[in-house]
Amino acid sequence: MKISSSEVEYVAHLARLEISEQEKEKFTFQLNDILLYIGKLNELNTQGVEPMSHAIAVTNAFREDRVADSIGTEKSLANAPDARGEFFRVPKVID
């Protein structure tokens, strides 16, 4: 196995996902399959190859520092599951 069920549990916790025991088992197998498949890449010899994070060799894509209109509070809040006045409302979180 490429991944243990406790690792799946840990990742689920980091992502704030609640999963059942059944799901944990299912995801462990699924993730294992994915990792095995991706693992094929390890068969390639990549010695001397620079790591890359983009498929195309574009660099320095910039924007000028000029203000454009924002969309406004009303539109910003339009998709919010919960809002109050001009704010998004969320369950209380204090750390």
């Binding site: 924007r63 000029r66 203000v67 454009a68 924002s70 509070t73 809040l77 001009e86 704010f87």
Partner: peptide, 22 residues
């Protein structure tokens, strides 16, 4: 700067809540 790091919204302090968003 006048605008945010990745969009053209204003960075001005003290705007009414969520008015400088996109």
């Amino acid at each position: 700067t006048d605008t945010k790091i990745f969009c053209n919204c204003s960075t001005k302090f003290g705007g009414s809540p969520n008015s400088h968003t996109c």
